[in-house]
Amino acid sequence: MLQVELVERCKANDRKAQMDLYRKYAEGMFCVAMRFLGNEHDAEDILQESFVKAFQRIEQYRGEVSFGAWLKRIVVNGSIDFLKTKKMNSIALNEGYMRVADEQEDWTVSDGVSLDKVKQAINRLPEKYRYVVQLFLVEGYDHNEIAEILNITETTSRTRLLRGKGYIKEMLKDKSYGTGS
């Protein structure tokens, strides 16, 4: 059955169609939530909440993007909201003094650095940088979309991307020379 037909049946509150959409997207959306949360139980909770929210708001889905992209945004926002409530105490930097990131800059790392080390470095970033880096590099959002999701300006998104990349490079450089923790 076509995705458009499934969505239309879901709009008519067809439970079988809802289960079909759930089966089609649950695994991929779980992976998205896991990339943000790193905890299976939290990711499962966010996944369930996201599907409930999607089915409650399915009338708002207009087909301008694929259903998967629309659902992914709900999962990403749910994951970020969960993390924000978990860590309410964060210190804001005055980012007006930072230069704007150019996403075309070099993102390569030395050959001796494994993907796991890169992931660990991303996970150790302060959350405001981690969210932008993850949304840009892992989820593939552009700065306009990141700005909308995080309720920041595009300039702030670019700046946080640059700053996050700088932190990652420093963490990986320390590891490669054996001077890091």
Rank of each mutant, 00 (worst) to 15 (best):
E105P: 00
Y25T: 03
K16R: 08
E27D: 15
M88T: 15
V132C: 14
N144C: 14
L161T: 02
R57H: 09
N123M: 15
Y61S: 04
S66I: 06
H143K: 10
E5Q: 13
Y25L: 07
G78P: 00
E64K: 14
K84N: 08
R73D: 07
V76H: 03
D106A: 00
G96W: 03
E8V: 04
F55S: 07
I146V: 10
A43E: 10
R15E: 15
M1V: 05
D111L: 09
G140V: 05
L6N: 05
V7R: 00
N123K: 14
Q18V: 11
E105Q: 12
E139R: 05
F82V: 01
V32S: 00
V32E: 02
L37D: 07
G38M: 06
I149Q: 02
N94W: 06
S50K: 05
Q48A: 11
Y22T: 09
A69E: 07
R9P: 00
L135C: 13
T156C: 10
L125P: 03
R163K: 14
Q3L: 10
S110D: 13
G96Q: 02
K16G: 06
E27Y: 12
K119V: 14
Y129E: 14
D106L: 01
L115F: 15
V132K: 03
V32R: 00
N13S: 07
S157C: 05
A92W: 14
M1S: 04
V132L: 14
F30M: 08
